[in-house]
Design a protein around this nucleic acid. Structure first.
Lengths: 327, 327
DNA sequence: CTGTTAGCGCCTTCAG
DNA sequence: CTGAAGGCGCTAACAG
């Protein structure tokens, strides 16, 4: 392996001088600079990031913890993160928890050991243990997707989005509306989206039967089951809001199996603006959360934090309703 | 920051001894070990990976270059890679090229500078420049998805899979079969899948009209357009093979717009076993390539290569036809 | 069994 | 403007 020492010898200067031209720091005569540069070019030398990190305590690596990369939301966020970070010479160290909360904690430690300059956590929960660790970790960290006190975060406006979606249904004349949600330990998706729904229904003086509110997990099959349960009730709703597009797609597949027409027998909407949503039959009404942009914003936050520049503690992304034929 | 030196002092031993207990190497008395371990526990000390890497020349990081993480194939591969690598204490450094071939080359350099222990390249081309760089790079590397000489790789059996798919259609009585492919610079997806189709048709003595063979790009809309072109021809095919599920889904959406029935007016199949394929109407016939497993195999290869253990240069994954109502 | 010593490759004073 | 020297945190001989 070729090192700074080799370059120094070949260019007939000291290692310090080589370092200076490499980092554009301090004074270097034109002549010396040229000699060094040409040697660097010839040899294709590139300084060791590891040795550099050891000295400077900067690694130019951001750890990203996520629950899965198999669904569109985190994938898009990572794409946004990567785009922004790479502009500034940072790389992403990936930590996939596979939805395992224990791994989430372990990775926090691991990334600390790896001495990443910052951590981005695409969060699905805000458990006490997790929050405690986050506060102890002492590395710039931003959470995406969940809000939390004293932690920088980028969130979506889950509450308002779902209220607006609910209002849309009501404006279309629906009074009996069902809801497919997820566990409330996921505050953003489970709690706030549900609250938005319930609050809007209450505000409009509409009541909600218990059987209309189903709890599912994050996959298509679960949406299918949830719709089945909703329709078992004798008092049947005429519209359903699902907290993710995949749940909505699952629900639609059940409706179609039973020969029910969308939106006439049952109107339906999801959240997430998945690619598939527009190719459903009928095309699915959904909410675009601009996940890539959220990733970019998260990246900007973490970079600002690393450079201890002033920054916002909290960013709430805007959303956009995409109204299609399913309502 | 707490270092090995601090631990040594607190445990009243030398740094070497601390290092020994940390790495379980050499002899350490029970007593000393216990003292060190308890201090480590109390302090929560974790050795710096960077300093360690500088010494050992091992980083326990694998660079993964991919064209996008927004589609299922690479996401699944990365999931498989991550699962296997993390078992062995390796982390993934992500390099997303965003389908940019120039970035692909740059990342190869960057990962070298970062001194990753190995590189996994989820490849979409085998351009001369790329292959040249790969051969020069001098770091263990495995390609996934494309075959190449003198480079370890994991590939799918594209040729046989498509031949079998074509045969399936023919057995069902189809004689006029269309094909939606992609550019042949992608050898695996563009060239071999097409060749499988054409060879099987020829073998069965069936002719293929030029308009039946369309070239698309990797998205749903492109599949839609391709089907439109196919149906402009006066001699209309009765079945279509698309090289990806998304292309097939796009093609299906066109057929539905035109009120054509699947599979009676047009049978259709895709490749990739996407999650959506089973929720299409009708459910889409496709080929499962076991991408996660391919990722795991790739991980095993790269680990073997890093440890210079004997290994296979080449792995061809098995595939599985998933026959559903779309044919 | 344990401590001393000598770097790994780089950056950063500090003199000159 | 430039070189010498020191040290980042760690591991790996090598003596004891």
């Amino acid at each position: 392996m070729i090192t700074i020492k080799d370059i120094a010898e070949m260019a007939n200067v000291s290692r310090s001088t080589v370092s200076r031209v490499l980092n554009d720091s301090g004074y270097v005569s034109e002549e010396a600079r040229k000699r060094v540069e040409s040697v660097v070019k010839e040899t294709g030398y590139a300084p060791s990031e590891y040795a550099k990190s050891l000295r400077t305590k900067k690694t130019k690596v951001i750890g990203v913890i996520l629950p899965t990369i198999q669904t569109e939301t985190p994938s898009r966020i990572v794409t946004g993160l990567g785009r922004e970070l790479s502009k500034h010479g940072y790389q992403i160290l990936l930590a996939n928890t596979d939805h395992d909360k224990v791994k989430e904690l372990e990775y926090l430690d691991l990334l600390k050991v790896r001495q990443v300059d910052g951590i981005v956590l695409i969060a699905t929960n805000t458990d006490a243990k997790l929050m405690k660790k986050i506060k102890e970790i002492n590395i710039p960290l931003v959470m995406i997707g969940q809000e939390a006190e004293d932690v920088m975060h980028v969130t979506y406006d889950d509450y308002r989005a779902v209220r607006e979606l609910t209002r849309l249904f009501i404006q279309k004349g629906h009074e009996k509306i069902a809801f497919i949600g997820v566990d409330e330990s996921d505050r953003a998706v489970g709690y706030y989206r549900k609250k938005g729904f319930l609050d809007e229904m209450a505000a409009q003086g509409l009541s909600v039967e218990q059987a209309w509110v189903q709890k599912a997990i994050f996959d298509i099959a679960s949406g299918h089951e949830a719709m089945e349960k909703i329709l078992k009730n004798t008092n049947k709703p005429t519209a359903t809001i699902a907290v993710t597009d995949r749940l909505a797609i699952g629900a639609m597949s059940y409706l179609k199996e039973k020969g029910m027409k969308i939106p006439t027998d049952m109107a339906i909407a999801g959240i997430g603006a998945s690619e598939m949503s527009q190719y459903m039959e009928p095309p699915l009404t959904t909410v675009d959360y601009q996940n890539e942009k959220a990733g970019e914003e998260g990246a900007k936050q973490i970079l600002a934090s690393i450079e201890s520049r002033p920054l916002q503690e909290k960013i709430v992304m805007d959303y956009r309703l995409i109204i299609r034929e399913s309502v």
